[in-house]
């Protein structure tokens, strides 16, 4: 057993930190897109639009039922062979698309469950004042469902940040890709991957602190 090359590790930290913005960018964009898509899917699952319901069920089933890595390869390497306009798609875009579709399927189920958890009286009050279904969902039901679903959704966001590491398989140099390159130059694989692991860990820990504050904020209206 050899000693850890601490100097090498310390030197690697700023290099990998330089790729944190790209990792967070991919995760943040994918999260925003997934939230919108998942909300639409969840609302559809609750109100069941005839002719659309089976499609949504199929979508959720497929994207929950297949591995994220397989989906990413399908989009990045596979689809351009059948859809020629996709030949220009770059790795970052493909990764964001893949993460969006994959996680929206999971998040849709969490949001659907949260919507059905919103008290019936809230729906009736919204209907009684003459709101349209869209107004009721947007102004009353979804905000309350959001509070119920928040802890679960933050968990998915954390998963998503870690999931961006798969983008390196599409040739994207993000945190994981940069580490891989560094390690293959120095052959200090253990040090390199330990550094990147710790950096991911720190990012997730910081977010977990943010999660507590978010929950306090969301519960503000419900404090007695």
């Amino acid at each position: 057993m050899r000693a850890l090359d601490l100097d090498y590790m310390l030197g690697l930290v700023p290099v990998i930190l330089g790729y944190v913005p790209l990792t967070l960018f991919m995760a943040a964009v994918a999260m925003l897109c997934a939230l919108v898509l998942a909300s639409l899917l969840a609302v559809e699952r609750v109100i069941r639009v005839p002719g659309l319901d089976w499609l949504v069920v199929l979508f959720i089933s497929f994207f929950r039922g297949t591995p994220l890595l397989v989906q990413l390869f399908l989009f990045y390497y596979g689809l351009p062979q059948v859809l020629s306009f996709l030949t220009q798609i770059n790795g970052v875009t493909a990764a964001i698309m893949g993460l969006t579709l994959h996680f929206s399927a999971y998040m849709a189920e969490a949001i659907r469950a949260a919507i059905t958890g919103v008290d019936r009286s809230q729906w009736e009050a919204a209907q009684s004042i003459g709101m349209t279904q869209a107004q009721m969902m947007r102004r009353i039901v979804l905000p309350q469902a959001g509070r119920i679903a928040a802890p679960t959704l933050v968990n998915y966001f954390i998963d998503m940040i870690k999931g961006t590491s798969l983008a390196f398989t599409l040739g994207v140099t993000e945190m994981m890709g940069a580490t891989q390159k560094e390690a293959s130059g120095s052959f200090l694989y253990f040090e390199a991957f330990l550094v990147v692991a710790i950096l991911y860990w720190i990012i997730v820990e910081v977010l977990s602190q943010g999660q507590k504050q978010l929950e306090t904020h969301l519960n503000k209206a419900y404090a007695r």
């Binding site: 008290d119 009286s121 809230q122 009684s128 309350q144 419900y222």
Partner: peptide, 14 residues
């Protein structure tokens, strides 16, 4: 019409 509910049914998020 305007409806007053037995259980108040105020919007909990407002």
């Amino acid at each position: 019409t305007a409806f007053v509910f037995q259980n108040y049914a105020l919007f909990a998020n407002k």
